[in-house]
Design a protein around this nucleic acid. Structure first.
Lengths: 141, 141
DNA sequence: CTACGTGCAAAAAGTTTGCAATCGC
DNA sequence: GCGATTGCAAACTTTTTGCACGTAG
């Protein structure tokens, strides 16, 4: 049976408190504040477990590693906005509508993912204050 | 100056011959047919080089490692269809149109990626012949 | 007490890099 | 000949797994 452990609770707490999808590393760092001895493996094991239970959802964007968010914080059908400057991911409400007929004849569209790229409001504002455009964060891998 | 090597030519050939985006591993395997001693590092180095030159493009789908295709085979603005049964990726022509106003106020949309998921025509046909649905290919990582 | 959970370290998988040998030009 | 390029192995990153110990119920 599933037990209640300090580490699992802390992971839940961090995810509930986040306003956006978090990477396993961000979650690990966040949990270490309250449970310093937690290992990254425990984070991964719990993410998988919570995912199976449907308590959290994974957010996978093109070319990025998976992020995770509490399912109850995720809106129904939504998409994501990826700020190319601060590298954060936001949910966006809208959807261009059903795209069942974009696919060639014979293809069945079950689901779709849409990712918008650009500059978030915060970074757009910062750009005014500090017009020096630094190219990305160079975070490879 | 850039030299013409057997390995680089072979990589170009494999990409040109492919009807779909290929993973570095698929490219490596394909090139080994004509240049057996090629190492995977050479594949990666050349992919990066060809990418910088704009000769090829990378196709990054959510949760997947990058695939590559010859730029001249890629259509202008297009999106991708990922068959969840055979795991192959196809290009689709259409686009639901500009989605600049999906993002919250203050956000600027520069680009977008759309991925459709479902069953390709071939797999849909095969399903009729062999209705047994096998759950995915289990390719993790 | 006992099975589930954890920490740690090692293993996988994918990608990058250092280095000496090789080969195009 | 010289420098771009390669093969190999080692390094690195992210995620998974083995194992002995810890702990919730």
């Amino acid at each position: 049976m599933e037990r209640s452990t300090r580490q699992r609770s802390a992971i839940r707490t961090v995810l509930e408190a986040a306003a956006r999808p978090l990477s396993p590393q961000e979650i690990h760092a966040g949990v270490q504040v309250s449970v310093p001895e937690i290992g990254i493996a425990t984070v991964y094991r719990n993410l998988k477990l919570l995912l199976d239970e449907g308590e959290i959802q994974s957010v996978t964007l093109p070319g990025e590693n998976a992020r995770y968010e509490a399912a109850r914080l995720a809106h129904h059908h939504h998409h994501h906005f990826h700020c190319t400057q601060c590298d954060r991911v936001f949910e966006v409400e809208g959807c261009p509508g059903p795209m069942h007929d974009l696919a060639p004849a014979g293809f069945t569209v079950v689901r779709h993912d849409l990712t918008l790229y650009g500059t978030c409001a915060e970074c757009a504002g910062a750009a005014v204050a500090a017009p020096a455009k630094s190219r990305g964060h160079g975070h490879r891998h």
